[in-house]
Design a protein around this nucleic acid. Structure first.
Ligand SMILES: [Zn+2]
Ligand SMILES: [Zn+2]
Ligand SMILES: [Zn+2]
Ligand SMILES: [Zn+2]
Lengths: 135, 135
DNA sequence: GATCGGTTTGACAACGGTTCTCAACTACCG
DNA sequence: CGGTAGTTGAGAACCGTTGTCAAACCGATC
């Protein structure tokens, strides 16, 4: 390791491409597919390969800077999110998203899990619907 | 409509293929992909086209006789389940599955959704962990 | 049993999202 | 600068899933 970082991180460079993806994400407040993000970047004159968009999104998700979840068709969709644990209420039509928290739900899932002797619990909880604007 | 049924159902025939899929499902107590189900049927000497497996699973899911959810890769996986609404506690290692119910959670999701004016609500809630046997 | 119309099937092609490949390129350091 | 490791992009490959459509099947009817 040659970097001056003290962690074991392999040096992530702030390239033009990665900045473009970050900017695109900042421009959305709802969940978007990799292709939609790629399209937006192109439409803005900037050019970033689709593979790079995927790579960057995966890295950001890995670092916890974006949330990735899957729509009902199984496609991955991404959104930059607050860093505290939360869930989402997502419009099936336009992608409008509301972050929601539910301490009771968190307690419930943990209770259920330990009741059955399960350890290392994680959970997914997403709510889909049609938002007021799309009705 | 020519059937003697009183519903509007379009007459579903209990063909050899559909019975084979149902039998395969009965042989599993955990979630499996369409291809795994197809493989099991083949391995048992029976032969059913993959497309038919997909069609049958989709129909069963539609009729509420099997649950379909998506693993972390976005692939659809199926399991025959009780016909009441419920969620799953799934072992990340061996796939062991426990059906769980949570009226409070159902109430919470509906409340959150209508609070934000969303309609036609659906939700996904799955809990993943390591079961007692796998620890 | 023969006939007939709608249902079902399966081999195969097509599709679409995602990942892989690898040579060219770039940022960073000394 | 020159070296080196990280990064990129075009396109191919991958793979789960869905569409196509002619042939097979089933049940009802004659
Ligand atoms: Zn909407
Ligand atoms: Zn949670
Ligand atoms: Zn287990
Ligand atoms: Zn529920």
């Amino acid at each position: 390791m040659t970097s001056t970082e003290h962690g074991a991180r392999p040096a992530v460079r702030p390239t033009r491409q990665r900045l473009a993806v970050a900017a695109a994400l900042a421009g959305f407040d709802d969940f978007r597919s990799a292709q939609e993000i790629h399209d937006l970047i192109s439409r803005q004159g900037d050019s970033v390969g689709l593979a790079t968009v995927y790579r960057t999104l995966a890295a950001l998700a890995d670092a916890g800077e974006v949330d990735m979840l899957r729509n009902e068709d199984g496609e991955a969709i991404w959104r930059s999110c607050s860093d505290t644990h939360h869930h989402h209420l997502v419009c099936r039509t336009c992608g409008a998203t509301v972050e929601v928290e539910g301490p009771a739900v968190e307690r419930w899932t943990n209770a259920i899990a330990s009741e059955h002797g399960f350890a290392e619990i994680s959970h997914t909880l997403e709510i889909f619907g049609t938002c007021p604007a799309c009705r």
